[in-house]
Design a protein around this nucleic acid. Structure first.
Length: 176
DNA sequence: AGGCGAGTGAGGA
DNA sequence: TCCTCACTCGCCT
């Protein structure tokens, strides 16, 4: 056939400028597949052009992503969300990510709480791993997962970001 | 209070 | 099959 078949895994990147830097959003044909923190000191890279048949769809999603991100960064709960393409995760990871999305803005849960939420009370340690594999920072609020006894725990994007995000949501940030 | 070790489930090499 | 965790708990100073 003449229609160019895109690989199912095709991803298209757009940036979201914020006061904190440029977040990078990556879209598949199914929705937002990845959102990453601003990188410091990397050369701007060439991004593949978005095919015409996806342009309008992705533009719409990107507006939703940008607004939702900026809302959370300013401590307000987003009204609308882009569709999320979480097909890259395992079943267990998707369950953890869904549990994270149930934590309201301004609230936190411990890794143990999340493990109980998904019906695997002993899997609290694996929950940490799934949080670390979260492909969509901020919108899937892995920063709201703390260790037991209110300790901060870790963060794949760096603990500084975790503190920043918690502070933006008005959460008292543990000393460590 | 704080350190330490064992136990734990999932994922990746 | 092994190893590594963004953990938790209990026991010990």
């Amino acid at each position: 056939m003449t229609s160019p078949t895109r690989p199912a895994a095709a991803r298209f990147e757009l940036v979201i400028p914020t006061e904190q830097g440029e977040f990078i959003a990556r879209y598949s044909a199914r929705g937002l597949a990845r959102l990453t923190f601003p990188r410091t000191g990397t050369a701007p890279r060439v991004r593949p052009a978005i095919p015409r048949d996806l342009l309008q769809q992705i533009s719409t999603w990107h507006r939703l992503t940008s607004r939702a991100l900026k809302m959370i960064l300013s401590g307000r709960a987003p009204l609308n969300w882009p569709p999320l393409d979480l097909s890259g995760g395992t079943e267990f990871q998707r369950q953890v990510w869904a549990a994270l999305q149930r934590i309201p803005l301004g609230r936190t849960a411990s890794y143990g709480d999340l493990a109980r939420d998904i019906g695997r009370p002993q899997a609290f340690r694996a929950v940490g791993g799934a949080c670390g594999a979260n492909p969509i920072v901020v919108l899937i609020p892995c920063h709201r997962a703390l260790a037991a006894n209110g300790r901060l725990g870790g963060f794949s994007g760096g603990v500084k970001w975790k503190r920043t995000l918690l502070a933006a949501e008005g959460i008292a940030v543990p000393a460590r």
